[in-house]
């Protein structure tokens, strides 16, 4: 028996990672877009890559799809080089914008994709139906709304019946209704066991649709856990204090600190038991001007992902 993709895939169910990013760095000239990402995603996970614009989400997605190559580190998709995984239809993607020709009809666009992947004509109808655009099959792409075009991209991505589906900011520019319809289609599809990775800067999307949330900030992963773990992270409060040379303070000695940040003379400590943190600061350090503020999910996200005003 020759070694085919199918035999490799059988191994996919026996512990193979869907995605394996190992020390991935991507630089464009002097700009570092991705700064050492390690990420392993198991088959069947629905993962949100959450972060503000410019955090490195799209760069990461491009590398997963073999559209660009890492400056250093390795990227593997189902144990293969991304380009190979794409060509075999193991991974497909719904990109943010573009990628459609106005003078094809919806059906022709999907049919072309079917031809390229060597799928039978019947697969076209199935994909159109699953993406919820069977009723506009004969419409020219140029006459479709943004939401319809996005569902067309989704239909194209479904055609190779990929193990891994990647969505890059899939609902940008959609209205609320379109967004919900799109996610309903994705969710229905993910229930069949497909691995899904979606990049988004909408917190509520990550919260509502992901099993696992990976927070990215300035090219690095700053948090990685279930949506509820990330919420727990956000459930605490922040203690702000002024003290000279905050860098000299051993932050690990302070009880209950989950995250910390230093801005000049100001120290920001985040945790659930902020009373204990405040007590420690007042009793054991020179800290003064204490403020305790609570933050919501949005604040947590912003704090975790915002750029520092003075980068180190």
């Amino acid at each position: 028996m020759t070694l085919t993709a199918a035999t490799d895939l059988a191994a996919a169910g026996t512990g193979q990672q869907a995605v394996n990013l190992d020390g991935v760095v991507k630089r464009f000239g002097t700009v570092t877009a991705v700064n050492g990402i390690d990420l392993r995603i198991r088959p069947g996970e629905v993962v949100a890559l959450l972060g503000p614009n410019g955090a490195g989400k799209t760069t990461t997605v491009d590398m997963l799809l073999g559209l660009s190559q890492p400056t250093s580190g390795t990227v593997q998709v189902y144990g293969r080089a991304p380009q190979e995984a794409v060509a075999l239809g193991l991974v497909s993607a719904v990109m943010q914008t573009g990628g459609l020709l106005k003078d094809y009809t919806v059906e022709e666009t999907v049919r072309l994709t079917a031809v390229l992947f060597g799928k039978p004509r019947a697969a076209v109808g199935v994909a159109l139906k699953r993406a919820g655009i069977a009723d506009i099959a004969d419409r020219l792409v140029g006459k479709c709304s943004g939401g319809q075009q996005q569902r067309l991209r989704f239909a194209m991505a479904l055609l190779p019946d990929p193990e891994l589906l990647i969505l890059d900011e899939p609902t940008t520019g959609m209205d609320v209704g379109g967004r919900r319809e799109f996610w309903d289609a994705i969710r229905e599809d993910a229930e069949r066991g497909r691995t899904v990775i979606f990049a988004t800067h909408y917190l509520e999307e990550a919260d509502a649709y992901a099993d696992r949330v990976v927070l990215v900030r300035r090219g690095s992963i700053v948090a990685d856990g279930t949506a509820s773990e990330v919420k727990a992270l956000a459930a605490g409060r922040t203690v702000r204090a002024t003290l000279p040379d905050p860098e000299r303070l051993d932050l690990t000695a302070i009880p209950g600190v989950e995250t910390s940040e230093i801005r000049g003379d100001s120290l920001y400590l985040h945790g659930r038991d902020t009373d204990a943190i405040a007590r420690y600061l007042l009793n054991q350090t020179d800290a003064r001007d204490l403020e305790i503020t609570s933050r919501n999910l949005e604040d947590a996200f912003l704090t975790l992902t915002a750029d520092e005003e003075t980068p180190a």
Partner: peptide, 14 residues
């Protein structure tokens, strides 16, 4: 096709 991003889309096919 390049202007429309179609060439890039085709790179996601075999």
């Amino acid at each position: 096709e390049r202007a429309a991003g179609w060439s890039r889309q085709l790179r996601l096919t075999p």
